[in-house]
């Protein structure tokens, strides 16, 4: 079973991301939720996850800092981190991808956007390829 951490300070945003991931092919996944980057790092110590999907603008520790921490950690730097934020455009995409983000998506999210940007991370039911 896949395990995914969703990081956003908005419970509404976390719920929307979860729904979209379920529709996009992660219906059997276990979802773990964090309200900021620091909470996510704490959860990453306890759980082996397939990927992290994180907002950028959050109190305590933002998504960019979470990405830096994960990339600097030998235990976490192989875990894909997908950025999902209202504060991204092409210029910011490049910065985040250069920092090691797996993909960058702008809000509002949709199952189609997830399939377009994250197909390598999500089981493909039709082909049987994936986790």
């Amino acid at each position: 079973m896949m395990k995914i951490i969703i990081v956003d300070d908005s419970a509404t945003a976390r719920m929307i991301v979860r729904r979209c991931l379920e529709i996009a092919g992660c219906s059997d996944a276990e979802f773990i939720e964090a309200g900021n980057g620091k909470e996510a790092l704490s959860l990453l110590k306890e759980h082996k996850v397939d990927f992290v999907i994180s907002d950028l603008n959050m109190p305590v520790m933002d998504g960019e800092m979470l990405l830096k921490w994960m990339k600097a950690s030998p235990k976490l730097n192989e875990i894909p981190l997908v950025v999902l934020s209202s504060a991204v455009n092409a210029a910011k995409d490049r910065v985040l991808l250069d920092m090691g983000a797996f993909a960058v998506m702008s809000k509002p999210i949709s199952p189609a956007k997830i399939n377009e940007s994250m197909s390598a991370l999500i089981p493909n039911k039709e082909s049987g390829y994936g986790y």
């Binding site: 603008n57 109190p59 504060a87 455009n89 809000k107």
Partner: peptide, 22 residues
């Protein structure tokens, strides 16, 4: 939050980063 991001992406050229508050 989502409306503002969507608005900024439409107003600003692609090479302009933007920052939003909470």
């Amino acid at each position: 939050n989502t409306i503002t991001g969507s608005l900024m992406r439409r107003i600003l050229p692609d090479n302009f980063e933007y920052k939003l508050g909470l």
